[in-house]
Design a protein around this nucleic acid. Structure first.
Lengths: 153, 153
DNA sequence: TATTGTTATACTCTATAACTATA
DNA sequence: TATAGTTATAGAGTATAACAATA
């Protein structure tokens, strides 16, 4: 099916298409572990930030507290993470369980293999450049939603 | 929140993050028109392929017939596209309506502005290179799902 | 007052499976 | 038999709004 100039020109469109492929491949690679790519990301973030709370995790994942709850619940049900008492009586401290740590190596191997396959048509140099450019785009602070000019309030 | 090496190294992860930003910005830009980014893509694909059928549209969007139906229904309800008799008695030929054509210029201006803002930290040269690399990744034919070795069927 | 976790609820998008009418 | 559209249904993921406990 033809994609006209207007569509092909949009970096956001190309980004979304490439991301869709990446997501599918990652999903397949993680299927044996019953994890979605987003849950694998959550798991890695918890490993990299032991004792973090759910709100911070949600923020890093780009979802809100309520949505983060769901993911944390599922990871906990599967025995990969646990909630420990946090710095407050309000907060939970998230940690990988021993079982989570154990399985991490195998899961990392799977996701890394899928990622290598994803960029197999790129030279190593190109892949690094791509990663750097993507990071620059993602690092942009959330663009403030333009405020209406308060017409007559 | 810290992102360890394992996570930052994954091109798929950076891709997903950048894509998330792009999607949000595009969503905001198209909000006044009541269109999601995916629906704008569908609209552009129909414009670029007048008379296409729903299955082909779904394929281009990466979704199945059933999911394509929904999007087509909504675009039709909003008067942006119409179903005309297709080459078969089975198929519909999708076309933009006059109203759809009319609104296209304004909608394109909005999405293009958002896209320029997305890559504002990149030089024009870099943006072109990025687009080309993303296209190469997306162009990879859907990786065949590895088949089990038929143990004893 | 503000924040954390939590729950209930709803919405969007997607998929699967079945049906129908054509081919 | 195969294909296009359609429908019903279910699932994942998200958001909003409220509440309780705590700060």
């Amino acid at each position: 099916m033809k994609q006209g100039q207007d569509l092909r020109q949009l970096v956001g469109y190309q980004l979304q298409r490439a991301s869709l492929i990446a997501e599918r491949d990652a999903r397949r690679a993680l299927e044996p572990f019953g994890l979605s790519p987003a849950k694998m990301t959550a798991l890695l973030l918890i490993r990299d930030n032991p004792g973090c709370d759910q709100t911070a995790l949600g923020h890093a994942l780009g979802i809100n507290r309520s949505s983060a709850m769901r993911q944390v619940n599922i990871l906990e049900e599967r025995g990969l993470i646990e909630r420990r008492p946090g710095r407050d009586a309000r907060t939970n401290a998230l940690h990988l369980t021993a079982s989570g740590e154990e399985q991490m190596a195998t899961m990392l191997a799977a996701i890394n293999a899928a990622d290598r396959a994803l960029v197999e048509t790129l030279t190593g140099e190109e892949a690094v450049l791509l990663g750097a450019m993507l990071e620059r785009i993602a690092r942009q602070s959330p663009r403030p939603r333009p405020r209406r000019a308060l017409p007559d309030a």
